[in-house]
Amino acid sequence: MDFDWTVIADALPALLNGARLTILIALAGLVGGLVVGFIAGLMRAYGNTPLSAIAFGYIELIRGTPIVVQVMFIYFALPVLAEVRVNPMTAAITAIVVNAGAYIAEIVRGAFLSVHKGLKEAGLALGLPMWKVLVYVIGPVAFRRMIPPLGNQFIVSLKDTSLFIVIGVGELTRQGQEIMAANFRAVEIWTAVAVLYLIMTGTLTLILRITEKRMRIL
């Protein structure tokens, strides 16, 4: 078979549009996921029994179900149950927030609990309230340890956006699928799609590398 570069050239604007949506969903979803993950992770690590139990329930529910099912639930089931109508884009971002949040919660919990307990005691012994110990003493050390696993999760979540093809969000994979359905050039289109994902994850990896190098891991 011959590889037809013009197919890619023609498809590129639509694919780039899709990539733009992919980045938007991943970015918004991960920002929200970080917020949810920090809250749930700290609830698990330092919360009282009810708080910890709520966070545990959330994490287990999300980790125990596929993300495709989660987004279908948000998009199709939630309107029936609660009469909230969401557009595909909102459903996609929400799915990443909720899904990445659960995994990030475990990363946050693990990183905070991995910090030598002597540091917590040294902070408390100075007369600091616990929240200040978490913010100024344990947090900065834990944060550095979170960077490698967070990087992993960012990449997973970015690629997970491809699953939102099932609710018709026009992200990169969906764009590829639509073009392919019209011209049947599977090799060219899926190669282009794969390369675009690689460029996105590669950039992310590079950013994380630089961040990691700038911070001394403690």
């Binding site: 540091l119 408390l124 007369g127 900065p140 403690l218």
Partner: peptide, 19 residues
Amino acid sequence: RVIRQEAGMVFQQFNLFPQ
């Protein structure tokens, strides 16, 4: 917290803040 501000503590493992 008031007590802890009145009683400074030095630990076996130093426990300095590494950052």
